[in-house]
C-alpha cells in the first residue's frame, strides 16, 4: 500500500495564500504612512541639526536648510558649557542607580524570599507610597534638604532619588525573586549558606536582566527630572543635564546655532546608552503592561 506523502491541500490554502498576497501588497502604503509619522516626530531634531551649523547671519538668510560653510565651532563652544552638565548627570544618575539597586534588591530579597513577622505590614507600607504623588512631597522635601544643608550638593538629588526610585525597582525585583524556584534557596541553606550568600551568589546573578531593566527605568527618571534639580541647585557648575540645558537655552535663545548644538550634544549620552542596552530598554518601557 503506497502512502501518499504529499501534504493534502487544505481547501483554505488557496484563499489564505491570496490573503497573504493582498497583505504584502498593502505593505507599501503602510510603510509610507509609518515613515511620515516617524519623520514628523523627528522633524524638530532634523531642524535642530540644520540650524546647529549656522551663524546668525546665515540663519537670517536661510533659516531651516543646510547652508555652507558649516560652522562646526558652534559644537565646540556648546561643548565647553554642556560637558559639565553631562558629567554632573553621569555622576548623579550612576550613584543614584547603584544606591537604588542595592537597597531595592536587598529589600526585594527580604520580601520575596524570606519570611518574618510583620512582612505584610511592612510591604503594604511601601506599597502605599506608590500612591503619593511627587507634588505632595515637593515642598517638604525641599525644606528637609535645606535643613540638612544639602542644597547645592549632588546629595540634594542623589539621596531623595534613591528613596523614591527604590520603591519601583523593589516591586519589579520582588516579583522576579518570587518566581525563582524555592528549591534553589533551600538547597543553599542546607549546604550552609547564609541568607547574605544566597542573596549575593544566587539571587543577584540570576536577576541580571531584571536589574538592568530597573536600572534603565531609574536612569531615565533621574536623567529627565527638571524641577527638583532646578530647585535645589543654583550653582551652574553642579547642574545636571536637563535643567542645565534649560538654563543654557534661556541664556542663548537668540544665538540659535549655539543653542541647537547644545541641545543635540545633550541628547547623545542616552542614545549611546540605548545602543548598548536596547533590549532592557524595550523590556523596561513595557514593564507597566506586564502583569507584575
Amino acid at each position: 500500500m503506497s502512502v501518499d506523502t504529499s501534504d493534502p491541500k487544505p481547501i483554505s490554502a488557496v484563499s489564505a495564500g491570496q490573503q497573504v498576497a493582498i497583505f504584502k501588497r498593502g505593505d507599501w502604503w503602510r510603510t509610507v504612512v509609518l515613515s511620515l509619522f516617524w519623520l514628523g516626530a523627528i522633524l524638530p531634531m532634523v531642524m535642530a541639526f540644520f540650524i546647529s551649523f549656522k551663524t546668525l547671519s546665515q540663519f537670517a538668510r536661510q533659516p531651516f536648510i543646510l547652508t555652507s560653510p558649516l560652522h562646526w565651532e558652534n559644537y565646540d563652544l556648546a561643548w565647553q558649557v554642556v560637558q559639565q552638565f553631562i558629567l554632573n548627570s553621569l555622576i548623579i544618575s550612576s550613584v543614584t542607580v547603584i544606591g537604588v539597586l542595592l537597597c531595592a534588591s536587598l529589600s526585594a530579597y527580604a520580601f520575596g524570599i524570606l519570611d518574618f513577622p510583620g512582612r505584610h505590614i511592612l510591604f503594604y507600607m511601601v506599597l502605599t507610597l506608590m500612591m503619593v504623588p511627587s507634588a505632595l512631597t515637593l515642598i517638604p522635601s525641599f525644606v528637609l534638604v535645606k535643613d540638612l544643608r544639602l542644597l547645592n550638593t549632588y546629595w540634594a538629588m542623589i539621596l531623595p532619588w534613591i528613596a523614591s526610585g527604590q520603591v519601583f525597582a523593589m516591586f519589579i525585583l520582588r516579583t522576579f525573586f518570587e518566581s525563582l524556584p524555592k528549591e534553589l534557596f533551600d538547597a543553599a541553606r542546607i549546604d550552609g549558606a547564609s541568607e547574605w550568600q544566597s542573596y549575593w551568589r544566587i539571587a543577584l546573578p540570576l536577576s541580571k536582566s531584571m536589574l538592568g531593566v530597573a536600572a534603565i527605568l531609574n536612569i531615565l527618571g533621574t536623567w529627565n527630572n527638571l524641577i527638583w534639580p532646578f530647585l535645589t541647585v543654583t550653582r551652574q557648575d553642579l547642574l545636571p543635564l536637563t535643567p542645565g540645558l534649560w538654563t543654557y537655552q534661556t541664556a542663548n535663545f537668540t544665538r540659535y546655532g549655539l543653542m541647537m548644538a547644545g541641545i543635540l550634544i545633550g541628547s547623545i549620552p542616552l542614545v549611546i546608552l540605548f545602543i548598548f542596552t536596547s533590549r532592557w530598554f524595550v523590556a523596561g518601557l513595557t514593564s507597566g503592561a506586564i502583569k507584575v
Partner: peptide, 11 residues
C-alpha cells in the same frame, strides 16, 4: 537601608 531612606525622604 530601604526603610531608612523611605522614612527620611518619603514618609
Amino acid at each position: 537601608p530601604t526603610f531608612i531612606f523611605l522614612l527620611i525622604f518619603m514618609y
